[in-house]
Write a protein that binds this DNA or RNA. Structure first.
Lengths: 289, 289
DNA sequence: TATACTAATGACTAACCGGTCATTTGTCAA
DNA sequence: TTGACAAATGACCGGTTAGTCATTAGTATA
């Protein structure tokens, strides 16, 4: 089957380009890295690059999507499934671990956050940030309940600050040389967060301010988009159990008749597969779980 | 005096360029702004630009120096002169106020922090960051004394995080539209900081990590450089009292025979003048006050 | 007015950029 | 071996950049 093989080749070439670009963007920044540099780096021609990506912008958006989808669905899954005693620690540890493991991407994401001029890309970054915000907010509400309602936005922002700033610490200063103890760091951030949650009395951030910042990109996941994504995942999936789970979830989307427990179980099944994390996250949101 | 007038003209032209560049860099970023754009913006020719600055890089370094010198000497003065009850509030309020007032510069500084490739510029930014770190550390030690020694680096980093993240909030999202209450924000950050200082028990940051990060740019201010800077300030100063204070301080540098109280008073005199803040800061450090 | 000198100009250079496309190379089935 | 088709190439295009420099404009003195 030449078409499939061609498809595979193209896929791996796309991956090759993305890997090289990740390296170079992290070192030099997106704008400072030329397409020529990328193609030299992975030993292909400039023309070949444009067979895989329509533009340089499409490449970085693909990178952002690739990592943020995995990142956010992981964190969201943790927030929604971990018991309260371990939740905060798991949240911090996973976050720090992700940034540490994918430090090249972390550098790119943080850099483009403040620097990018590309409106498409900026919108995408804001979108993922907003998703992360709402996940953290959900966690805060679960952890501390009603009595911290008046300071929940400040708490959310402090949590975000902690993750961002301590990540920057080891992203932009090769603290990698010192072996850093992420377990200890997570514990110390848990302590700080609990302190702030229990004793803070002066709120600053209001719903209004957060709304201005988050821009409320009202993005109800459209059923059609979800179906399309499911279809694609089904096509590319080899493992039979996960494939069947995906098919059943697709049917549930078209004609809801499965019990909540079954749907939850099917989502559990697919969550484990790296290629299904994102669709799992979107389905959780669609089914309001 | 044609030479002096020429000098003045050049100065004001330099200032004109810096003002225009500040605007454009904040909006578009340093690399995305061309020299042509800057010169068009302030109605001069491209050649004229290179009469004032040797390169585009020299321009942004001049901007960073200009603002960071004022910024750091202000904060350092506050930390060294304010009584403990008001200190933390003053620190936060002044910091936030500075970022708010000079939001254009704030944007540039934060952007270049993570993005810049220019090694000179990056070194300069790290240098000012290290100065700020040591000032915050001094404040922490003054405020909370010996008993927080084990967590002082974490506390310093949290304070820095608070300032940075809450400043970014109103720098990059035009929260200016909502009238933001910096007094309230400062109070809320004071509360958070005190909470962390009094109850944190798990340290993460160690002296070693901070040293790696700060790169310990061992920058004993050289007496000759200080004399040169003093000389320059004396030449440009009009106000007689400040001018005399500068002259006396210069003599003290060459031949120390004034009492500490007199030196302190002279430093008070010059601190008030915007053009002497930096030399005042450097002298305080040189005299170990 | 003539002279001398500095300030200011903008056309120009050399380099680099993202993106295109006519051409070549490689790989199949017939 | 041939023919057909897709994959890959890199010279090339139009555009932008930082920085230069021969030339001109402006001004103060003699």
């Amino acid at each position: 089957m030449s078409t499939i093989k061609a498809g595979e080749d193209k896929m791996s070439k796309k991956q090759l380009i993305m890997d090289s670009a990740l390296d170079l963007f992290a070192k030099q920044g997106f704008e400072a890295t030329s397409v020529q540099q990328i193609t030299d780096y992975c030993g292909i021609s400039k023309g070949a690059f444009y067979l895989s990506f329509k533009s340089k912008d499409e490449l970085i958006i693909a990178l952002i999507d690739h990592f943020m989808e995995a990142f956010i669905s992981d964190i969201d899954y943790i927030v929604k499934t971990t018991n309260n005693e371990e939740l905060l620690y798991s949240f911090y540890y996973t976050n720090l671990q992700s940034f540490h493991k994918h430090s090249d991407f972390g550098k790119i994401f943080i850099k483009e956050q403040t620097h990018s001029l590309n409106q498409d890309l900026l919108g995408r970054i804001r979108y993922y940030n907003a998703l992360m915000d709402s996940t953290i907010l959900l966690m805060v509400e679960r952890l501390y309940g009603e009595e911290i309602t008046h300071i929940k936005y400040d708490l959310m922002y402090c949590i975000k600050s902690f993750v961002t700033m301590y990540s920057e610490l080891f992203l932009f200063n090769n603290v990698v040389s010192l072996d850093l103890d992420l377990d200890l760091l997570a514990h110390s951030l848990v302590e700080k967060t609990n302190l702030l949650a229990k004793h803070t009395s002066i709120p600053f951030l209001t719903k209004e301010i957060i709304q201005v910042v988050s821009q409320t990109t009202d993005d109800k996941v459209k059923r059609e988009q979800l179906l399309e994504l499911l279809e694609q995942n089904i096509k590319e999936m080899d493992e039979p159990i996960i494939k069947e789970s995906l098919i059943l979830l697709k049917q549930q989307l078209l004609n809801p008749n499965l019990s909540p427990a079954i749907v939850a179980g099917l989502l559990e099944n697919i969550q484990k597969n790296p290629h299904c994390k994102w669709v799992s996250y979107l389905l959780r949101h669609y089914f309001q779980i």
